[in-house]
Amino acid sequence: MPERNIEFGKYGARGLKGHEAVARRLDSLAGFVATPVTARRGLLARLHYLTRTDHSLRAAREAGLTVTDRTLRAWLAGDRSPSRANLARIETAYRTVRRNNVARYLLARLNREGRGTRVEFHPLNQSQVPRPRQRALSYRTLNVRHWDRIVQAWAAGDEAALDEAWVTDAVVDLGSEWGQYEYVTSIGFAA
Rank of each mutant, 00 (worst) to 15 (best):
A156W: 04
A156T: 11
A156E: 10
A156L: 12
G157P: 02
G157Y: 03
G157D: 03
G157W: 04
D158Q: 05
D158C: 02
D158R: 04
E159L: 04
E159D: 11
E159F: 01
E159I: 01
E159M: 05
A160W: 01
A160H: 02
A160L: 05
A161D: 08
A161S: 07
A161H: 06
A161Y: 06
L162V: 05
L162D: 00
L162S: 02
L162C: 03
L162E: 01
L162Y: 01
L162I: 04
D163A: 11
D163N: 10
D163K: 08
D163Q: 10
D163Y: 06
E164F: 10
E164V: 11
E164H: 14
E164S: 13
E164M: 12
E164T: 13
A165D: 05
A165K: 00
A165P: 06
A165N: 05
A165M: 02
A165C: 01
A165S: 03
A165T: 00
A165Y: 03
W166D: 01
W166K: 05
W166I: 08
W166S: 08
W166M: 10
V167K: 07
V167H: 08
V167W: 09
T168F: 14
T168M: 14
T168L: 15
T168D: 14
T168N: 15
T168G: 12
D169N: 13
D169Q: 13
D169H: 13
D169V: 10
A170E: 07
A170L: 07
A170Y: 02
A170R: 07
V171C: 14
V171D: 14
V171Q: 15
V171A: 15
V172N: 11
D173S: 15
D173N: 15
D173P: 12
D173A: 15
L174R: 06
L174M: 07
L174A: 06
L174C: 06
L174N: 07
L174Q: 07
G175M: 09
G175N: 09
G175Y: 11
G175L: 10
G175W: 10
S176F: 06
S176H: 09
S176I: 07
S176D: 12
E177Q: 11
E177V: 09
E177C: 09
E177F: 09
W178C: 07
W178K: 08
W178Q: 08
W178V: 06
W178D: 08
G179R: 04
G179N: 00
G179Q: 04
G179T: 01
G179M: 00
G179V: 00
Q180V: 11
Q180C: 13
Q180A: 14
Q180E: 15
Q180N: 15
Y181M: 05
Y181T: 04
Y181E: 01
Y181A: 01
Y181S: 04
Y181I: 03
E182W: 13
E182V: 14
Y183N: 11
Y183Q: 11
Y183D: 08
Y183T: 10
V184Y: 02
V184F: 04
V184A: 07
V184P: 03
T185K: 11
T185V: 13
T185F: 11
T185W: 09
S186I: 09
S186V: 10
S186E: 12
S186Q: 13
I187Q: 04
I187P: 00
I187G: 00
I187S: 00
G188N: 07
F189V: 00
F189S: 02
F189K: 03
